[in-house]
């Protein structure tokens, strides 16, 4: 089965690279511009979370992004090995944030949920976070 994997250091410069790569990969199924942008935004949220929250600013740690397409459905996973989330249900609620700076409004998971068809967040404290999201790219047949 075809898939792509990107491993990045947890620095903010790699966020746009990650979302652009997944969007370019999804483009092979000729999705609408809106769908491409939804994917781009959701990936940006997941990778940003790994960069900001997982490693307490340790730039040398890694985040891995994996994507594959089966029957026109894109599946993306974003995985870090950082501090993890104690209460996933609470963390994924709208406006919940553990950071008080301007850029954390607590909407990351809400955006992922809204812009993708499915969202699964796997985590326990101390073992990192894995975010798995899927989205149907188009209704026609995908030329793979």
């Amino acid at each position: 089965m075809d898939s792509i994997t990107l491993v990045i250091k947890a620095i903010s410069e790699n966020i746009s690279l990650s979302r652009t790569l997944v969007a370019a990969y999804a483009a092979r199924c000729n999705p609408s511009f809106e769908i491409i942008n939804d994917v781009k935004t959701a990936v940006s949220e997941a990778v940003t979370n790994a960069v900001i929250h997982a490693y307490n600013g340790d730039f040398d740690k890694e985040v891995s992004i994996n994507a594959h397409i089966i029957d026109n459905i894109l599946s993306v996973s974003v995985t870090d090995c950082g501090v993890g989330i104690a209460d996933v249900e609470k963390a994924t609620q709208g406006f919940y944030t553990t950071r008080q700076d301007d850029e954390c409004v607590g909407l990351g998971f809400t955006i992922m949920k809204t812009f993708m068809d499915t969202l699964e967040v796997k985590s326990t404290l101390g073992t990192g976070v894995s975010v798995i999201m899927t989205k149907r790219l188009s209704n026609g047949k995908c030329e793979e």
Binding site: T41, E103, V105, G108, I111
Partner: peptide, 13 residues
């Protein structure tokens, strides 16, 4: 060209 929730935070701030 693109905005995610960090950009939303910037505007809200």
């Amino acid at each position: 060209t693109f905005i995610d929730s960090s950009g939303i935070g910037l505007i809200l701030g």
